[in-house]
Amino acid sequence: MNRSTWIEQLGFGVLRLCTLLVVFLIFWLIIDLFIKGGDSLSWIFWSTFPQKGMTAGGIFPTVVGTAFVTLITALFAVPVGVASAIYLSEYARDHFLSRLIRASIRNLAGVPSIIYGLFGVALFVEGLRFGTSVLSAGLTLGLLSLPYIITATEEALKTVPKSYREGALALGATQWETIRSVVLPPALPGITTGIMLGLSRAAGETAPILFTGVAYYLRYLPGTVWDSFMALPYHLYVLATQHHAIEEVRPLAYGTALTLLAMVTVLNIIALQIRYRFQSQPTG
């Protein structure tokens, strides 16, 4: 073996080693969580309230709270996000306004999540007097997930062939009728994927809800959008760092972390599965 082949083998070996190291690391971290937290998981854990100062019992209210907030997030971000993407993909021509909108969206995607939290406090909690509530937190998370939903929806709309639009317009359909009847339906799986990825990201966020509505402990479930709520990610933060008996509640923290991880992973897998099915299908 000559010298250059030897160097090539060595170089590729290093690259392979790096990759295997990362793969190993990911598996190690996840398996470690499973080994230590697997025992805590049960239907009872998911369906009961915390008990004895959160040293026992389950995480039911946090699951409900996260689901409720995510619902509000979706109700706000899905229509606004999809509409924005429709504007950018179907209406906007390359002029100053559309470039400004695109630049704003790209930069919003890079704004730190805690900044969204501050904005939520100033706009929703204080400015609009929604208080610390499901509504304030849901809208804050909605703003955070907007860029993801817009970008993913626009990508999905771009995969719809131009000939569909031409065909409908040539038959005397208005642009709105064209979009509704021949552009949106084939883009729907792609849009759904984007929405699910965006919402799962929002559901796992902690910083934006810290000051906009999440509570340390509540004895009741939130009944209306004006109530405070408990949330899975914040609950994990509390159990891991803020609790008075941190070592004692560690198994509960593991269970919470695993639940959160499982929730996000399942959502991601379903979302990617929808996209995969969509891509492998001929669009004609």
Binding site: A83, Y91, S104, I105, I115, F119
Partner: peptide, 19 residues
């Protein structure tokens, strides 16, 4: 409809400027 989607898209500009 066009007005509606345009307004939605402008919201992103407003949010960034607002922040």
């Amino acid at each position: 409809f066009k007005l509606l989607v345009k307004a939605a898209a402008l919201l992103s500009v407003l949010v960034l400027a607002g922040i």
